[in-house]
């Protein structure tokens, strides 16, 4: 049997914790695991693991830059930069300078709340999305400069999340308009285009899509929604296309009946387990159902952690490193770190 065991409960934020992000360059070769968390208290906190005790402590508080809720944070692939998206309509870029974080750039242009920020795999592009229904793509230039590459309009409502594909420069966005849109820079045109929309007509969600995540190879994606379902999508031949066009995504299966309230977050680990965080305060883990009969469900519930938090869970994220741990962020103002163990 598997169990999700609480390693630590982290306090410090004075308002709900919206999101957290693991520094992808930590957790290997003796480097302690580091993650950032962001909150309604307008701050971002940096948490670093003590290798002796295995526990996390807050090593920095990034404040007095954002004037409203910080809704999302994301590390660049190099781990040197941290991007934070705020309800103050800006995205701040922080650079780690000898343990201190300095705001080196502020990206403006969204008309109102920025909901999410995401780096592509190479760290050359940054995407942001907003309640103004737009998705912006920025190019990362030398000297911590950023340049607006494209302003994408296609969603008809608030865009909740943007996420780059793990290996391709393809961007995914999900929205209050119940759809997931796929964006690519098709060679012919001079700009980014929506190349696919995963909406209700093709087995998409029937309510707000809050988050999405890819498996390690990038050929499967899981999305979560207000409609109380998780949906898994797949595509063919990721990375093996030789100059061919975009490979479309198709619906694989829907996981329904497991959640009682809105699912706010979903994240797929390198080991193939995906975690969901929901408004019912629970964390659920799902895994391939290898014993599935023909036509049976492809994924099964591995476990459910009731009362993981006292309030809504806004974000769940698997860590990098040889032995991943799971971190969760909640409306109760705390972050918890979990270990998946067997007994």
């Amino acid at each position: 049997m598997m169990e999700l065991k609480e390693i630590q409960r982290l306090e410090g934020h004075t308002d709900k914790v919206w999101s957290l992000a693991w520094n992808p360059t930590t957790g290997h070769a003796g480097i302690p695991l580091v993650f950032a968390s962001c909150s309604g208290d307008k701050t971002v906190r940096i948490w670093e693991q003590n290798l002796s005790s295995g526990l996390w402590a807050c090593t920095a508080v990034l404040d007095e830059t954002h004037t409203r809720t910080v809704r999302s944070c994301a590390w660049s692939p190099s781990g040197k930069l941290l991007a934070t998206a705020s309800f103050d309509a800006t995205t701040a870029i922080w650079e780690n300078v000898g343990g201190d974080f300095e705001c080196v750039s502020t990206l403006e242009g969204h008309e109102n709340e920025v909901k999410c920020v995401s780096w592509n795999a190479a760290g050359t592009l940054l995407a942001t999305c907003s309640r103004d229904k737009s998705v912006w793509i920025w190019e990362v230039l030398p000297g911590n400069e950023f340049e607006c590459v494209s302003v994408l309009q296609g969603h008809s409502q608030d865009v909740k999340m943007v996420k780059w594909h793990p290996t391709e420069d393809i961007l995914f966005s999900c929205s209050y308009d119940n759809s997931v849109k796929v964006w690519a820079d098709e060679g012919d045109s001079d700009d980014w285009q929506c190349v696919q929309t995963l909406g209700e007509p093709n087995n998409g969600h029937t309510s707000t899509v809050w988050a999405l995540s890819f498996n390690v190879s990038g050929d499967k994606m899981v999305t979560c929604s207000d409609d109380l379902t998780l949906k898994v999508w797949e595509t063919e031949s990721v990375g093996t296309q030789s100059g061919g066009g975009f490979a479309p995504w198709t619906h694989l299966c829907t996981l329904s009946g497991y959640h009682d309230r809105t699912i706010f977050s979903v994240h797929w680990s390198r080991e193939g387990i995906f975690a969901s965080g929901a408004a019912d305060n629970a964390i659920r883990l799902f895994v391939d159902d290898n014993e599935s009969q023909v036509g049976g469900p492809l994924y099964k519930l591995l476990l459910k952690k009731e009362k993981a938090h006292d309030m809504d869970i806004n974000s769940v994220q698997w860590s990098p490193g040889e032995k991943p741990v799971l971190a969760s962020a909640s409306d109760d103002g705390t972050i918890k770190v979990w270990e998946l163990t067997s007994y």
Partner: peptide, 13 residues
């Protein structure tokens, strides 16, 4: 176009 406008505005600021 709006994207180029944004870059000019950034430089102005």
């Amino acid at each position: 176009g709006f994207r180029n406008l944004q870059n000019i505005v950034r430089k102005l600021k």
